[in-house]
């Protein structure tokens, strides 16, 4: 399926947010996630299902003022 990951269109055959994170190289990283602009807690990623054209945000700590 085609999804939007951090604003970029990608193709994946993963069906859950947790498996997508592993596929995209985020395993073990300190990140937070959102699906279609709604926060998805870490504990819910493995039961959060992806759909065509869904929008995923993966964020990490960054400098800020």
């Amino acid at each position: 399926m085609q999804i939007i990951l951090n604003g970029e269109a990608i193709t994946t055959n993963k069906t859950t947010l947790a498996s997508l994170l592993i596929e995209q190289g985020y395993e073990g990283m300190v990140v937070a996630t959102a699906l279609n602009q709604l926060f998805v807690a870490k504990d819910h990623r493995d039961r959060t299902l992806l759909e065509d054209d869904c929008e995923i945000e993966i964020v990490a700590p960054m400098q800020g003022g």
Partner: peptide, 22 residues
């Protein structure tokens, strides 16, 4: 100290380095 959140790449890992610094 104030910090923020931004999109993270699975390859560049900029945020991970900043996290270690924090």
């Amino acid at each position: 100290i104030t910090v923020s959140v931004r999109r993270e790449s699975g390859t560049s890992r900029d945020g991970q380095r900043f996290w270690q610094l924090l």
